[in-house]
Design a protein around this nucleic acid. Structure first.
Lengths: 107, 107
DNA sequence: TGTTTATTTGGCAATATCGACAAATATCTT
DNA sequence: AAGATATTTGTCGATATTGCCAAATAAACA
């Protein structure tokens, strides 16, 4: 595997890593409905504000969301709605795995 | 956020985590072309066999790939080709971020 | 049966991620 | 300027991930 190929997959992995956390997936889901400020998301998630802010910064630096400062508040919005298309596939993986587990139990 | 919602996003995150590593993304890419045995993938990746085997086991337990034992060798194949559809979106995130960086440099 | 080859698994050190607290920063208000 | 509110950042302990080596397992074959 040459350096260029390696760089490509590393760049992709960086985005995937940003998506690989339940809280961040929730944030994406919520931002797909409407933009939200940190305090609103913190309220919904029920973690420390600093924790939520860190998750937002991970998503932002991956280029998935963008921020919009309004006075004291910072509103975040989904910059790459195409990520949502993926969840159908993820869901099918989950379902298929679950179905398989069931089959194994039947015996 | 209730327990059910939380479980949904945790299940999704588990799949995303499996996809969040450059070597595993390479494996998926390679398996999308044709099925491969561990030794072939090891050769291409240039890591220890045990390392490659571990990556394969992560992908398998997430339900993304499946194995097919043939004598001493184990061939792996892509069970969820829909994951490939996502990379177009990932690519657009990468490009868009890169473009933005360029704009910043122009000033 | 003993040997060879392919793969998996146990264990360990290095590194990365996570979540919370405290402190810093920024904006608005008085 | 001082206070209040929203957010970010520094730090740290806990936990998870990664990659390699060595050892275990499994199948094919002499």
């Amino acid at each position: 595997m040459n350096a260029k190929t390696k760089a490509l997959f590393e760049a992709r992995a960086k985005i995937m890593k940003a998506l690989a956390h339940p809280t961040r997936l929730f944030i994406i889901h919520e931002l797909s409905r409407k933009q939200r400020c940190v305090c609103e998301l913190t309220e919904m998630i029920g973690a420390d504000t600093s924790t939520v802010s860190r998750h937002l910064s991970v998503l932002k630096s991956a280029g998935i969301i963008a921020d919009d400062k309004r006075g004291v508040q910072v509103y975040y919005n989904l910059r790459m709605p195409c990520v949502l298309n993926f969840f159908g596939c993820v869901e099918s993986v989950i379902k298929s795995t679950a179905r398989e587990q069931m089959e194994l139990l039947k015996r």
